[in-house]
């Protein structure tokens, strides 16, 4: 921007501006976390692999179907925890340190900032998911397949998880509350969601609740993409996830555009 002229510089907008800002903000995000990034990726990797190996120790000899549930469930958990749990904690941290306002003052489109954030979360999450799959393959010889469905499934899981996290982290301005929400979510995801086991194992009322929450659908779509014959229909799961993603995107847009 040069100020030599007598008029104000024109407003920057459009696709190339958007991508330039996306690239800069992604770089900014990566550098901001550069000290923590290797650790974060390792932790995610251990979580993914650990979940597969750990649960199998816990339950001893497990049958073929249980192995497939475990392998795909651990994959989903690895994909989703970064965006829905770890990411919001970073945003809460920014608020605590008082640096949140500066990020908000940057001359980049809000959507480019959200996209750069999503890209960062994906970078951290994917190695863990691959680790979980590899562990299941080598430890249990799990009969995983790769169908084209896996691509939209994984993308939707990543996107919905990250945007749900982004939405509540930006909507709730108290960092302590954000921390609490993330704790509750991790508890629900790991312990009480039909991700690594069938919903039929749950009490009826709880299974009914999960039909509307995103977690079971996340399990279903990824399982449909990586196994044969376990999941019969994914239409409902895709619809539920898409609705959650759109809701989260709407809330995020509102929250980051909001001026108190």
């Amino acid at each position: 921007m040069t100020l030599s002229g007598t008029t104000l510089p024109a407003k920057r907008f459009g696709v190339s501006h958007w991508f330039a800002m996306f690239a800069q903000l992604f770089k900014w995000n990566v550098l901001t976390l550069r000290l923590a990034l290797p650790v974060l990726i390792m932790v995610q990797l251990f979580t993914g692999v650990g979940m597969v190996l750990g649960f199998s120790l816990l339950f001893g000899d497990i049958n073929e179907v249980a192995v497939l549930y475990l392998a795909t469930g651990a994959t989903v958990v690895a994909l989703v925890t970064v965006g829905i749990v770890v990411g919001p904690q970073f945003i809460a941290q920014e608020r605590l340190q008082g640096t949140y306002e500066w990020s908000q003052s940057l001359p980049a489109p809000r959507t480019a900032a959200a996209a750069a954030w999503t890209a960062l979360n994906v970078t951290i999450a994917v190695p863990g998911a691959l680790g979980a799959l590899a562990a299941a393959r080598f430890r249990f010889d799990a009969s995983l397949v790769i169908t084209p469905l896996v691509i939209p499934a994984v993308l939707l899981v990543l996107l919905s998880g990250t945007l749900i996290g982004y939405a509540y982290a930006h909507t709730v301005s108290d960092p302590q509350t954000v921390g609490l929400i993330s704790q509750i979510l991790i508890f629900v995801i790991f312990g009480f969601s039909p991700i690594a086991f069938p919903a039929t194992n749950l009490p009826g009322w709880f299974a009914a609740v999960h039909r509307w929450l995103p977690f079971q659908s996340m399990g279903d779509v990824v399982r449909a993409g990586l196994t044969n014959g376990i999941v019969t229909t994914t239409t409902r799961a895709f619809v539920v996830l898409s609705v959650w993603t759109m809701l989260a995107a709407l809330v995020s847009t509102w929250a980051i555009g909001r001026r108190p």
């Binding site: 407003k11 907008f13 640096t99 500066w102 990020s103 003052s105």
Partner: peptide, 17 residues
């Protein structure tokens, strides 16, 4: 406000990240 952020550069009173 999108244009405002382009037209104003800002050093906040709070620390920088």
């Amino acid at each position: 406000p999108d244009y405002a952020r382009q037209l104003c550069s800002y050093l906040p009173q709070a620390p920088m990240p």
